[in-house]
Amino acid sequence: MIEAYIRSLVPDAHDRDDVLQETAKQVAVMFDQYDPERPFANWAVGIARLRVLECRNRRRREGKMFGGDMLNTVATAILEVQPEMSQRIAAMEQCVKKLKPRHRTLLDLRHTDDLDVTTIAERVGVKPNTISVALYKIRTKLAECIKRRVEAEDRGGGAS
């Protein structure tokens, strides 16, 4: 969840790695100051927020990162939706396994190899728009699958 928080506020991958690393280090260093009576996630997100803020200060001129007020807004929202997300992510794992191999490969190219749509299109020999639409539809199908599984679990039954 901490990674998701950082991911949501630091668009640049290199900056993100730095912030994550600094946050992890800070959490380790300050762990003896952690009050076990308070939620760990809140505490850790608070540390991550400071690191994100520092990163934003460095990148202020570029204007690609959100303003400082967003740090709290997003943190509050992430902490709020977090309880419901574990079920959705578990469902996602099952749904990803059900994807066709070529669809999984496409997702892999996009998310694991971090290739942009144009590069993927060049490598597979189709237009970028085709890849975009395909990715969109894969994600839509994934979302529908997740929704079905969550609803089925909520009803107490299994999901296909």
């Binding site: 969840m1 991911r7 992430i78 794992e93």
Partner: peptide
């Protein structure tokens, strides 16, 4: 804000899962 948060978490989870 919550929709954005869900997207962020799911997006990150998918990336992690695929890796």
């Amino acid at each position: 804000a919550c929709a954005f948060a869900r997207f962020a978490i799911e997006h990150h989870a998918l990336e992690h899962l695929l890796r």
